[in-house]
Design a protein around this nucleic acid. Structure first.
Lengths: 251, 251
DNA sequence: CGCCGGTTTGACGCTCTTCAACGGTTGTGG
DNA sequence: CCACAACCGTTGAAGAGCGTCAAACCGGCG
């Protein structure tokens, strides 16, 4: 299967990741080449498909490069909590390399394309390429930083603020990989998805979105976020992007 | 200062960490020795002291080996969200090694003793000792896994369940480092701390603790948790320790 | 046309917060 | 040795915010 993959395929698969990581550190040509060669396969799944099921032991990690995917946990009574919404350039389960068992599900929210990187390849990287290893480690630390901000959001912020904060975060993250421009970005999710991600119900999300629309701050409709007033949105959201660690520094 | 540290001091500082990591993988003698030599200093702080302030750039990471410490974020209006409660054997800011800036505060909840490991030493480990690097990486992934479970707790579980879940988690984590026995463990925190960690108010925590006491499931008083019925506690808490990744596997 | 998934809206109720007061314990200074 | 403050825990009453339930609506598609 590796043979089927062209260099063009590999470059496409790495585009988002290199933008994301390149914003935080310098990635050398040799390191890029190692990542390119580490990709064993590229896959596509339609919306709604489960990519990884909680409790399974994986032998490869997954790098998303097109579409929207989420990590989530389900409760016995059917409630779902979305832990993180993933976009192009995000590893969905890089932590599976060392945790071995995955403690949550991963599913495609839209049709999604992703590259597979075998754990063997990750292991070789960790044995031979310290800087690249630190970069990958860093990328899992970014996930943890995003987790922490979500704990704060869900634990202490009001419903509108939580939603506004999530939409701010997605704007910044999408912009970094070239998927958002100033005033708008594509977010092909349902209101129920936003509810899952914010610890709310879809009914209440609907009401809060109406409020954001009425106050001419933001409109979410037809899978698109239109930001009418970025300043007021950030303020309402209590959004400070420091937790996204956007500075470029040697790691 | 390094010269002042005896081998006994270093061993004491590493005890919790080695128990915690040793439960998840085999740590070799050479690796233990490297960790021992990486400790540059040992410090002590009284309860309430801030150990790391959000936004600062650190040049060393901190390993807690006695007392209770928390990571937390404060909001403009004074509300506080505790992100994680740390116990002996936990790194408080290992992620600071690669994130560079710390996105949260760290403070001692009781008097606390901890060891300092300079980032220079961590860097040398990451350059020369791949397996030990993976172990350290893994330990930050454990934090992330705990974060994820907290997102689920705060996002979807009821107040009693959240509190019960936190107390289950602490029991398991403390037991691993020898700080809990079957029916009870020391937890020298205030009800306000539990509130901070569960996204509740201390008033409501008080009511829920009374309920747990009345139903003869658990008593939290005088800095001690007494578990009357572990089975019912786990069930009420919807507690499944899978997310703590307790299996010993080569990483 | 009629179904289907998703959105929108209203009425109602429960969980948790807020505010406020009181009590118990510990430490401190006169 | 007692008075007093400070801190934490406890309790009550009232209310806000969000959830629940249910129905209507809307656009797309077979």
């Amino acid at each position: 299967m590796t043979a089927e993959l062209s260099d063009r395929d590999r470059d496409e698969a790495l585009r988002g990741l290199l933008l994301k990581l390149g914003a935080r550190d310098r990635i050398g040509e040799e390191e890029k080449e190692i990542l390119r060669r580490s990709i064993s396969d590229v896959r596509e799944l339609p919306a709604g498909q489960v990519i990884v099921r909680a409790g399974t032991t994986l032998s490869e990690s997954t790098l998303l490069f097109e579409g929207f995917v989420c990590r989530y946990k389900d409760m016995a009574d059917g409630q779902r909590q979305i832990l993180e919404i993933h976009i192009s350039g995000d590893f969905l389960d890089l932590h599976g390399f060392l945790l071995k068992r995955i403690d949550h599900n991963v599913a495609a929210m839209t049709s999604a394309r992703f590259a597979l990187i075998p754990h063997d390849a990750l292991r070789r990287i960790s044995e031979n390429y310290p800087h690249l290893t630190r970069i990958l480690w860093f990328s899992t630390l970014l996930d943890a930083a995003i987790h922490r901000e979500k704990i704060l959001s869900i634990g202490r912020r009001s419903a509108v603020t939580r939603i506004a904060h999530l939409l701010c975060e997605l704007r910044v993250r999408l912009k970094l990989v070239g998927l958002a421009d100033e005033g708008r970005y594509a977010l092909p999710l349902k209101q129920a998805d936003l509810a899952g991600a914010t610890g709310l119900t879809s009914v209440h999300v609907n009401r809060m979105l109406r409020r954001l629309r009425n106050e001419e701050i933001l409109t979410f409709r037809g899978g698109e976020v239109v930001i009418h007033d970025w300043e007021r949105l950030q303020k309402l959201a209590e959004f400070n992007p420091a937790y996204l660690h956007l500075e470029r520094r040697p790691r």
